[in-house]
């Protein structure tokens, strides 16, 4: 599947990016009251960054044939 080393490396980078997105200390920045786009900041951040990460995964994978 992931034949090119570059794609595998990009994915590994996204893995690390996800680790950063989904963990302390980034989480603590959003772990507060208030609202972001009508949502609690932590929820908004997690769902938002998660979606971004999925989009990036899709971009890397589906773009690998180009």
């Amino acid at each position: 599947m992931i034949r090119t080393r570059l794609v595998a490396q990009r994915l590994a980078f996204l893995f690390l990016l996800g680790c950063v997105f989904f963990n302390y200390p980034l989480l603590s920045i959003f772990n507060q009251g208030g609202s972001l786009f009508g949502m609690p900041p932590l929820y908004a951040w997690l769902m938002g960054s998660w979606l971004v990460l999925i989009a990036l995964l899709a971009l890397v994978i589906e773009g690998m044939h180009d």
Binding site: M1, V7, L11, A12, L14, F15, G18, F22, W50, L57
Partner: peptide, 10 residues
Amino acid sequence: PTLLFALAGF
């Protein structure tokens, strides 16, 4: 699991 699939290649 999301992170696991980022590592799928490995």
